[in-house]
């Protein structure tokens, strides 16, 4: 009797472990912020068409297509933690509060984030 139980447990245990690992991997994938295209400089750059009469100084000879699809989380589930003393630009739009940690803006590929809350369109920049 005991040998049957041991055999059954021996067969089930690897399957159980495999299932736990698969679920863990799926959960990690589910929680990982979607970074598709966010830092893809090459995909977003375009020639800068402005002539000498354009104001300011050319720092790089390309312009970047606007950044739109970015991940957001609530404070308790941030994949990229933000310290209490770190600076944010925060706004309330259509009743929804959104914070943009300064350390996540810049690059220059991430100097502007195009956002939407309700029907309102806005952009955070640094």
């Amino acid at each position: 009797m005991h040998s049957h139980v041991r055999a059954a447990a021996g067969r089930a245990l690897p399957r159980l472990l495999a299932a736990i690992l698969c679920l863990g991997a799926l959960r990690a994938q589910e929680q990982k912020p979607d970074m598709q295209g966010v830092d893809d400089w090459d995909q977003r750059k375009r020639p800068a068409p402005w002539g000498k009469e354009a104001p300011g100084d050319e720092v790089v000879d390309v312009r970047l297509m606007p950044l739109e699809r970015v991940p957001y989380s609530v404070p308790s589930r941030l994949h990229n933690p933000v310290g209490d003393d770190e600076l944010v630009i925060g706004c309330v739009v259509d009743g929804k509060a959104v914070a943009f940690p300064v350390k996540m803006l810049g690059g220059p590929h991430r100097e502007i984030v195009n956002a939407k809350a309700g029907a309102s369109l806005f952009a955070a920049s640094w």
């Binding site: 912020p33 970074m35 966010v38 970015v70 991940p71 957001y72 989380s73 609530v74 404070p75 941030l78 994949h79 990229n80 933000v82 944010v88 925060g90 309330v92 929804k96 509060a97 959104v98 914070a99 943009f100 940690p101 300064v102 350390k103 996540m104 803006l105 810049g106 690059g107 991430r110 984030v113 955070a124």
Partner: peptide, 15 residues
């Protein structure tokens, strides 16, 4: 403290 239910941009730091 002002907005406990805030959304937060969640990207790796660039700085």
């Amino acid at each position: 403290a002002l907005h406990p239910n805030t959304d937060v941009l969640d990207l790796p730091p660039v700085r």
